[in-house]
Design a protein around this nucleic acid. Structure first.
Length: 105
DNA sequence: ACCATGACGGTGT
DNA sequence: GACACCGCCATGG
């Protein structure tokens, strides 16, 4: 991975997600001009940097990816709850309340 | 260069 | 809601 890679762009963007907010794989992909959200998930999986709040990236439906690297979906849920985000009984979160739209920095 | 593999998303049944 | 496909594309073998 020399030069600026897709991951570099994803990392910089994820860093700007405010505490208490979340965004989606698809939103990041589209923001970066990618046609597939799968690349975003792949990039986060391969590069788990503790300085990057990657737990704030979730699925569009407000649900969590089951294969989250740091403790699975449960570990991700705990991190989000630590951010002050409330889950309903089906492990969904209210996207109308918590969704954060990526913006140019 | 070919092929399998995803922390997805959209659509159809 | 639960499945099943399919398109997507960077990476590694």
């Amino acid at each position: 991975m020399l030069h600026k890679s897709v991951f570099d762009q994803i990392r910089d963007l994820v860093k700007t997600i405010p505490k208490g907010k979340v965004t989606t794989y698809g939103a990041i992909a589209r923001f970066l001009g990618l046609k597939s959200a799968r690349v975003v998930g792949w990039a986060l999986k391969g590069n788990q940097n503790p300085l990057i709040p990657c737990h704030r990236v979730i699925q569009k439906q407000g649900t969590l990816a089951k294969n989250f690297s740091l403790g699975g979906d449960l570990g991700q849920k705990q991190r989000l709850e630590n951010d002050g985000i409330i889950f309903d009984k089906h492990n969904h979160i209210d996207m109308s309340q918590y969704y954060w739209q990526p913006v140019s920095k």
